Simulated scan of single mutants.
Amino acid sequence: MRDFFSGVGFFIEGFGWVSRNGRWWLFGLIPAVIAFAVYVVALIFLATNATELATFLTPFADSWSWREGFRAVVGVALFLGGLALAVLTFVALTLTIGDPFYERLSAAVDVLETEDDQPWWRTLPRSVRDSLVTLFYMLVFTIPLFALGFVPVVGQTVVPVLGAAVSGFFLTVELTTLALERRGMARKERFALLRANKATTLGFGVAVFLLFLIPFVAVIAMPAAVAGAALLVRTRLAPTPDPAP
C-alpha cells in the first residue's frame, strides 16, 4: 500500500509544481480545453439521439409490450458507455492535440542533460499509433467489465474497483509516455517498466481517473497530471540525477 499511496503523492506533487509555475498551468490548459469542447459536443449529440440509436440497435424488441422501457434503459446505457469512453480517451486525445504543448511542459518539469530529442511533427505519428494500441488494450479489458456491470451485486461492487484499476493503469501509460520517450524508451519497454512498478503506477493512475470523473475538473487537472507523470518517471520509474546548477 505504501507504493500505491506514493503514486497518489506524485499526482499531488504535480499540482504543487504547476501551482508554483502558473504560466505552465495556463499553457497546458489550451489543448485540454479543446479536447473537452470536442467531448461536450459529442456527448450532447449522443444524449439527444440516444433513444433513436437504441431503437435502431434493438429491432428485435418491436413486438414487445415493454419495448419503450427497455429502450430507455438501453439509451441510458449507451450514454453512460459514451461518458465512460470519454473519460478513458480524454488523456489520449488531449495528449495528441497538445503534443508540442505537453512535450515542453514535461521537459520543464523533468530536465535532462541528454535526451532523445526529435521534432514533434516526427514523433506525432508514433504517438498516435501508440495511443491507438493503448486504447485497444484498454478496451479489451473495459468492454467485458462494462458488460459485467449489469450483473447484480458484482456489477456494483467488484467491477467498479477493477474498472478504476484498469483505467488507472492505462492512464499512467499515456501520461508517462512523454517522459519515457525522451529517455528513448519504446512502447514495449514502457509497458514492462510500468508493470514492474504496478502499485505506484496504479496509485498515480487511479487518482487521476477518479478526479477526471468530475466534469471540467479533468481540464483543470490535465497539466498537473502531465507534471506529476514527469515527476513519477524522474523520481521513481527511471531516476535521473538532478542537472548540475
Rank of each mutant, 00 (worst) to 15 (best):
M138D: 09
F11E: 06
A192H: 07
G7Q: 04
S131P: 00
L53N: 05
F5W: 15
V111M: 11
T157H: 01
A207G: 13
E68P: 05
R126M: 08
E115W: 03
I220T: 13
T96F: 04
V76R: 05
G163V: 05
L180T: 12
R23I: 00
R2M: 09
D130K: 06
V87T: 12
F15A: 00
P160V: 01
Q118R: 15
R122E: 14
V173M: 15
G81I: 03
R190L: 09
F170H: 11
A230H: 00
A32F: 02
L237N: 01
P31D: 06
P59Y: 10
K198W: 11
V154M: 12
L43T: 04
W64K: 05
D3F: 05
L162P: 09
G184E: 11
P100T: 02
R104V: 08
W64M: 11
Y39M: 12
V40S: 11
S19A: 15
V161R: 12
A221F: 02
E181N: 14
V38M: 12
A218T: 04
T94C: 09
L105A: 05
V158K: 08
F212I: 00
W120S: 15
L211G: 15
T114Y: 07
V18A: 09
L202P: 06
V226F: 08
M1I: 09
D116R: 10
V41G: 10
S167F: 03
L88M: 12
N197Q: 10
A199W: 12
V87A: 13
L139Q: 10
D242H: 13
A218R: 07
V91M: 00
A186I: 14
L85Y: 11
R71Y: 03
S19H: 10
T157Q: 02
G16D: 00
P245R: 14
R104P: 03
V226P: 07
D130H: 11
N49D: 07
G28Y: 02
L43E: 09
D62C: 08
A72Q: 12
V133Q: 10
A92F: 04
S127Q: 15
L148D: 05
F101W: 15
S127W: 08
T172Y: 01
N197W: 03
R195K: 15
R23W: 01
V73E: 09
I214M: 08
R2A: 14
D130W: 03
P243D: 01
A192N: 06
V87D: 06
V208E: 04
L88P: 00
A218N: 15
A238C: 04
R195C: 10
V173D: 08
F4Y: 15
L231M: 13
P245W: 11
P125I: 08
G155S: 10
L57N: 07
P125A: 12
L213I: 08
V233I: 10
W120D: 07
D242R: 14
T240W: 02
D99S: 13
L80T: 06
A192M: 03
V153N: 10
E68K: 13
T200D: 01
K198M: 13
G205C: 14
R183M: 06
A227W: 00
V161M: 13
